[in-house]
Amino acid sequence: MSASYLELRGIRKMFGDSTVLNDVDLSINEGELVTLLGPSGCGKSTLLRCIAGLTEPDGGSIMLGPTNIGELPPRRREVGMVFQSYALFPNLTVYENIEYGLKMRGADKKERQSRCEELLALVDLENKKDAYPQQLSGGQQQRVALARSLAVQPKVLLLDEPLSALDAKIRKSLRTEIRDIQRRLKMTTIFVTHDQEEALTVSDRICIMNNGNIVQDGSPEELYAKPRTEFVARFMGSYNVLSREEAGRLFGVAVGSAASYALRPESVRLLPASAGEARRDRRVADGTIESISVLGNIVRYSVVSSGVKLTVDALNDGQSHRGEEGAAVALELDSSQLLALEKEGA
């Protein structure tokens, strides 16, 4: 294993009686973009603030390269941070905001100017350099915030739900832009979000957090295809989570020894009820459509079969079978798609 760039060991944090971070270990390689994903209150933002030095952990160490930054004040950690609320300085122009960190570090005027021009070009805001933050849109403000934290060339960039305050369209374009910039600068980055779609699109690696623990980490593909626990399965997508008994009923055979199983909604195929007899090679179950919702390119059915409620996704391509609410259908199930889940906390 290669030596990691940022290394957190046993980070612990209590707020009163509640444990917010429970001995969290995390290693990040240089140039990697790691996302901390989890529901609100899972400790992801607290972990980020511990790295920045804005919250003091009760225990554990934070190594950045050879330096133990856990003992340094925030301004000596060489860590940049972008907040959900932008936190731009309202009394300074866009240019002055970006220049601020360089000024504090005593860079001379010429250096400041060339660096600022460079960053303004990077975030594509050259024509707004004399504007004040309140004259910019949310997306533009967040780009200024990004440029401002990059100006001082931090070793690690922390993004604390940077897109949550923006509307859906800007959010999508800005996340691509952030990923682009991160790749170009090979900036080691930690991205905090509660949005699984966002996490899947921007990350090299995702750490899913729950109750102050990292419950699973891996590449986006890995996490999506192989959730280890029920929590991850539910969080990563609209996985059907079935108890062993339910899975047995649905597939008509005893399925194994795990307490619960996950089944991807797109692995179930919806067929006309009459087709049930024709496919003997696979398990076909009868069901009834309860509800249908069209999510753009996907049609999501809620189907009840053998007393089990299933979510089934089908491509909205006009070719696959379209049932209607209340109609009887046949479900084609593939038992190799059934994923055994570990118990929570195991």
Partner: peptide, 29 residues
């Protein structure tokens, strides 16, 4: 109103000491 805590944190992470952050960022706002 000006979210002083976050402004201060931003300024500190950008390398300002607390005193300097107060004078350059908090006070004018």
């Amino acid at each position: 109103t000006v979210s002083a805590v976050e402004l201060l944190h931003s300024a500190e992470l950008l390398g300002a000491s607390r005193k300097r952050a107060f004078v350059t960022v908090i006070l004018p706002n």
